[in-house]
Simulated scan of single mutants.
Amino acid sequence: MNKLLVATAMIAALSAPAFSQEITGFNIGVLGGENAQDRMTSSECFRSKVEETLGVPTKVFTPADYDGVVQGLLGGTLDYAWLGASAYAKVYLTNPDAVDVMLTKQNIDGTTGYYAIGFARADSGINAIEDAQGKVFAFADPNSTSGYLVPAAELTEKYGKLDDYFAEVKMSGGHEQTIVGVANGDYEAGVSWADGLGNWEDGYGSGAFRKAADAGLVDMSDLVEIWRSELIPEGPVVVRRELPQDVKDKIYALVDTIFETDPECGYNLAAGEAKDFVPVKHEDYLGIIAARKLEEGV
């Protein structure tokens, strides 16, 4: 039995009248990384499907930074988010009972990971991370896995204190801001994320570069890859643990089958090309949680 049939059977078995008495609305949090209007637009198809599935008003919230989503989940004002692994680690370390881990994106090659990609302008003369020494370098957000935690750790291990290695280290505020900032010359180099599949000229298959290229914000031929991290585990789709179980089951089924029921909506949800969403568990993020604890001195 395929995913869609299983999901249909699961939803049919649930009691909608009982559910309608338990929640009156549903709030989706979308991590920072692109401007708020673009996040709202790309999330609309999913929002409408959630609203139809649950039968309650559903809203999308686009905080300015990653921590806005983290705090929304911790405070109970958000019910759902697709987090990066580091943001999930922060939620878990703050309150291990706040959310349930559900699913994660599976790439078109069957992997469930992605890369932090260092990059610069193609005409900058920076063709490797060593060429960026003494330059202004941009990370995305302190709570971003690929936009800070992993690349900062890997680069520090190899090159030492980054404030000494680079002329200046800046936080752009998000992946889109880093990409556009480097393209515009605000930063001489930076780091963002991609699945690393397909062509650089397209922004790879999925990720921040693909979204920026699709939106016409950058011409990828104006940029060049200068560094790549080790494979990073794809972040989890999470829901607030206190939600009724039937709500969780319906959301799980919706995300689990999104590429079968509406491939275009799946493309938007996955930030580009992907195979589908697959189950994931808390234990898959123990390494990132350990790295986050080390970073915070917990």
Rank of each mutant, 00 (worst) to 15 (best):
N2Y: 07
K3T: 03
I11D: 09
F19K: 15
F19W: 11
T24H: 14
T24C: 08
G25A: 13
N27Y: 08
I28L: 14
V30A: 13
A36D: 14
Q37S: 13
T41A: 15
S42H: 13
S43F: 10
S43N: 08
E44F: 07
E44P: 05
V50P: 12
L54C: 03
P57E: 00
P57N: 02
T58M: 10
Y66G: 07
G68H: 05
L74K: 01
G76P: 06
G76C: 07
T77H: 09
A87Q: 12
A87L: 08
Y88P: 04
Y88V: 04
Y88M: 08
L93E: 06
L93K: 01
T94H: 00
N95Y: 03
P96I: 00
D97F: 00
A98M: 03
L103S: 05
D109T: 01
T112P: 00
G113C: 02
G113D: 05
Y114S: 06
I117F: 06
A120V: 11
A120R: 08
R121C: 02
G125V: 11
I126W: 03
I129H: 05
D131E: 08
D131Y: 02
A132Y: 01
Q133R: 12
F137T: 04
A140Q: 09
N143Q: 04
S146N: 11
S146V: 11
L149Y: 10
A153E: 15
L155W: 14
T156I: 11
T156K: 10
E157V: 00
K161Y: 09
G174H: 09
I179P: 05
W193P: 03
A194G: 02
D195T: 07
G196T: 02
E201M: 13
S206P: 05
G207S: 06
A208R: 01
R210F: 01
A213D: 07
D214F: 03
D214H: 07
L217R: 09
V218Q: 01
D219Y: 04
D222I: 02
L223S: 06
V224S: 10
E225C: 02
I226M: 04
I226F: 03
L231F: 06
P233M: 12
V239Q: 07
R241A: 08
P244Q: 04
Q245K: 13
V247L: 14
D249H: 09
K250I: 08
T257W: 11
I258F: 04
F259W: 03
E264T: 12
Y267L: 00
A271H: 15
K275V: 01
K275W: 02
F277N: 12
F277G: 13
V278S: 09
D284M: 13
G287L: 12
I288G: 09
L294Y: 15
E296G: 14
E296T: 15
V298P: 10
